[in-house]
Design a binder for these strands. Structure first.
Lengths: 276, 276
DNA sequence: TTGTGATTAGAATGTTTATTCCATTTTTGC
DNA sequence: GCAAAAATGGAATAAACATTCTAATCACAA
């Protein structure tokens, strides 16, 4: 190192460098560059071996990448990624004060509430960063054009579908809520036509009735708009348009906050589109 | 490990455990407990040796502490501290930056989503600052002691009550969801006794069936726990314990996020109380 | 094609790190 | 105040780790 040291000392500068030089790097190193931008948290906490596996490269490539960025080795680069998480802590003192307060009352239930709050906040923020305006617009257009909207969502998703049904009712939008009452769920889609639309909500483990209904709708060429949790969901396969919502969980209970916000958005957007 | 595994899997639960058991631990371990609460980030990023030095203990004490908390070793405990940073909601600057990125492609629907997100976030934060641990504990105790929990919540509150019913079902807690099907709602409380409890949810304009049911329950000396929106609510009058939840609204649609977080807290807390 | 330099895969290496073990000290119950 | 139990300190150890090295592969110019 005889030249002036331009190696980034903070995350923003490093990110800029990776974006700038990323494309021009050799294949494997460029692959790592993309991975680093997409999964900064994994770089921060992973080991060379674990990250290499996730990014589908050899461990040695990670060291070469780090050196290409100007660091002596991987550990030095990782330190930048870690500092980013350290600095993200908003107001340290405030959190400590919170802790002290809780130490007094030490209510287990209150701590649960904090956990669920955080899961909800995180889920919403996460969806906000991933949600694409294009998908949203297409879904709204489809639903606004439908004669009748069939709402499918059972078990854990039933709060969502019942909310949508309630809101559609207030907004004067013709809809059918499929509630599985009397085990006759599949009958309720019998009269659906390609001029209608299905709004389906389901998460792992996908309720079998929901999957059946969506498959049936797709076969009948009824457009399906789905809210689900991964590209591998059986709903994603049959849906014309689908949203991926990754809800954070706490104590094994997944939040519903992000899904609910999305459902509200869809209902109101559809109403506004129809109104104009 | 033949006993039931109560080892915390997320930070909030671990924090609770450390607060609870911290004082009763031996000197050095209690010292570590205090350090862990004060410097969670250092635990997340440090090595056993570096943390030991900062906390003024021997490295081996850290392993002993981890084991005292139920983990196999320090690494397992550290993973909880790391997950906390992974899942942390992005800070303000990051959210603004994200918003800017989206502003380019901002469609009308996307703006709606931002609005509902904000309403949800605000509602949750607001409830978090107002919720009293004492009220929460009392409500949990009441519900945990009940033989059968009757869940009342119609119209806009139905998503909440159906969620609670779903969760109680999964947790094996005896309950009756009053869904007003067939207009026979009031019959469903006929068999309730003072050994049971009613969990009622209602907001302005209060669904008349809900109000009737709660009044009826109070007259029959069935304890009522209510979630509502003001001290002037007819539910507050008849309830033994009640929560005030002020949901922010956007475009005339009130959020449900805070109510949902509270409902989740109550269900899980009741299950945990019964389990112990 | 063939040769050359760049790039990569994967095993080998030496270092860091968590964990264990045991002698010593401190606390507890009588 | 004494014996027994619990807790602690610190060295020893084994596992995990980042890094290096070399043979093999790839890209590309002639």
């Amino acid at each position: 190192m005889t030249t002036a040291d331009t190696t980034p000392r903070d995350f923003a500068a490093l990110k800029a460098l990776i974006i700038e030089r990323g494309k021009t790097l050799p294949k494997r190193l460029s692959q790592i560059a993309a991975f680093a931008l997409d999964h900064p948290d994994d770089i921060a906490f992973g080991t060379v071996a674990s990250i290499a596996e996730q990014a589908q490269v050899q461990p040695s490539s990670l060291i070469r990448f780090s050196q290409a960025m100007g660091y002596q080795g991987f550990s030095e680069l990782q330190e930048i990624f870690r500092a980013r998480l350290r600095d993200r802590v908003p107001n340290y003192e405030e959190r400590i004060a919170q802790l002290r307060e809780h130490a007094k009352s030490a209510s287990k239930a209150h701590i649960l509430f904090e956990g669920f709050s955080e899961a909800a906040q995180k889920s919403i923020a996460d969806l906000g960063s991933k949600l694409e305006a294009g998908t949203l617009d297409k879904a709204v257009a489809r639903l606004a054009a439908a004669q009748t909207i069939y709402i499918v969502g059972l078990r854990r998703s039933f709060p969502i579908s019942s909310y949508v049904a309630y809101a559609f009712g207030k907004l004067g939008i013709r809809h059918v809520l499929i509630d599985g009452l009397g085990g006759l769920a599949s009958n309720d889609l019998t009269f659906a036509t390609p001029k209608d639309a299905v709004l389906a909500v389901s998460f792992t483990p996908y309720a079998s009735e929901t999957v059946t209904l969506v498959t049936q709708a797709a076969r009948m060429h009824v457009p399906v708009i789905a809210i689900t949790d991964s590209a591998f969901s059986p709903l994603a396969r049959d849906a014309e348009i689908w949203f991926e919502v990754a809800e954070a969980n706490f104590e094994g209970f997944r939040s519903l906050a992000a899904t609910l916000a999305l459902a509200m958005t869809l209902t109101v957007a559809v109403a506004e589109k129809r109104g104009s």
